[in-house]
C-alpha cells in the first residue's frame, strides 16, 4: 500500500504539490483526477523516488521512499506518461531488461517475459524491434515493462494519453488484472470517464491540492442528485447571478460572456422555465447540454472550471 502524508513539493516559490495526503490500499485502484499541471505527475515522481519531497512522508509497503528508497522502489512498478522503452530492441529484449533491472534472473525472468507478452498481446511480434509497433502496441509494451517483475504497487501516470479506443480498453483490462492479483494501483488521469470506470477511491486535485477525496459514490453525493446544464451563447454574468441568486433549485456553477453552467434539480423538467428566464434577462442561447451528475460536475462545482481546461 501507499501512504502519503502532508506531501509538499516546491520549486522556488512555485508549489507543485501542496500538503497532499491519501492512502491507497492493496487490491484497489486509487485515482488521482485533475487537469494538466495539477501536480499528479509530481506526486507520482515523489512516490517513485525520482523527486525528493520538500516535506511530508511517503511510505510504500511500510518503506519510507527517502530513507529506505531501494526497498520501497523494489516494490514499485511504474508506467510513465511518456513511453519509456528502447525502440531499437524487441519486446522480449525490453521486458527482459526491465525484469532484470528489478532482480529477475534465469528461468523466472524468461517465464515472466512470456507471460507478459501473452498478456499484452505481443507474443506473435515478440522478436520484432518495437520501433515497428503501432502507438497502441508501444503503450502496451510500456505497460508490460512496468509489471514484468510483478510489483506489489503499480504507479500509472496517465497511461492512456494518445491511445486509440481499442488499446485503451485493452489497457483497462490489464490494469484490472493487476488489481485481481492484489496489486495496489495508483492511477493518475485527467479523463473523468476513466476515473469513474476504474477507480475504487479517488482524490480530485487542482493546483497541487486535494480538493475532494473519497469513493465514487461519496464524491457523487457531494454534488447531490442535481443535473448539470451547460449553455453556450451570450450572457451577462452579473445579471445571471442576480436572477438566480434566490433560486434554491438552480445553482450557478460558472458563468462568463459565452458560457453558463448550472446545477439544477430535475434538469429536464426545468429547461422550459430556464430558457424563459434567460430570455427575459436578454441572454442568447446557442447550445444546451444536460448531463447526469458526474465527477466533472463535481470538479466544476469545486473549481468553477472544466476538468480539461
Amino acid at each position: 500500500m501507499i501512504e502519503v502524508e502532508q506531501l509538499r513539493k516546491q520549486y522556488g516559490e512555485f508549489v507543485a504539490v501542496d500538503e497532499v495526503s491519501f492512502t491507497a490500499n492493496a487490491g484497489e485502484i486509487f485515482g488521482l483526477l485533475g487537469p494538466n499541471g495539477a501536480g499528479k505527475s509530481t506526486t507520482i515522481s515523489c512516490i517513485s523516488g525520482i523527486l525528493e519531497p520538500t516535506s511530508g512522508n511517503i511510505r510504500v509497503l511500510g518503506h519510507d521512499v527517502v530513507s529506505d528508497g531501494v526497498a520501497s522502489r523494489r516494490q514499485l512498478g511504474i508506467v510513465p506518461q511518456e513511453l519509456a522503452i528502447y525502440e531499437d530492441l524487441s519486446a522480449t529484449e525490453n521486458l527482459s531488461y526491465w525484469g532484470g533491472a528489478y532482480g529477475l534472473r534465469g528461468e523466472k525472468l524468461k517465464s515472466r517475459v512470456q507471460e507478459v507478452l501473452r498478456d499484452i498481446g505481443l507474443l506473435d511480434r515478440a522478436k520484432e524491434p518495437s520501433k515497428n509497433f503501432s502507438g497502441g502496441m508501444k503503450r502496451r509494451l510500456n505497460f508490460g515493462c512496468g509489471v514484468v517483475h510483478e510489483p506489489k504497487v503499480l504507479l500509472l501516470d496517465e497511461p492512456t494519453v494518445g491511445v486509440d479506443p481499442q488499446s485503451r480498453e485493452k489497457l483497462f483490462d490489464l490494469v484490472q488484472a493487476q488489481v485481481g492479483v492484489g496489486t495496489c494501483v495508483l492511477y493518475t488521469t485527467h479523463y473523468m470517464e476513466e476515473a469513474e470506470k476504474l477507480c475504487d477511491q479517488l482524490a480530485i486535485v487542482d493546483h497541487g491540492k486535494v480538493i475532494a477525496h473519497g469513493t465514487l459514490d461519496e464524491l457523487r453525493n457531494m454534488f447531490g442528485e442535481r443535473d448539470l446544464i451547460r449553455l453556450t451563447g451570450q450572457f451577462d454574468p452579473s445579471q445571471i447571478h442576480d436572477i438566480f441568486q434566490h433560486r434554491v433549485d438552480i445553482e450557478v456553477l460558472m458563468v462568463d460572456e459565452l458560457n453558463l453552467q448550472l446545477s439544477v434539480g430535475d434538469g429536464s423538467l426545468k429547461l422550459p422555465d430556464l430558457f424563459a428566464t434567460l430570455n427575459e434577462a436578454g441572454a442568447h442561447i446557442g447550445e444546451t447540454t444536460l448531463s447526469r451528475p458526474n465527477l466533472e460536475s463535481l470538479f466544476i462545482k469545486l473549481t468553477g472550471k472544466e476538468l480539461r481546461e
Binding site: S48, G49, I50, V70, A71, R73, R74, L76, I78, P80, E82, L83, A84, I85, Y86, E87, W98, A101, Y102, G103, C145
Partner: peptide, 13 residues
Amino acid sequence: ELGTLRRMASSPQ
C-alpha cells in the same frame, strides 16, 4: 529522451 533514464531512476538499481 527515450524516458528510459527516468524509468531507471525509479528502479531499485
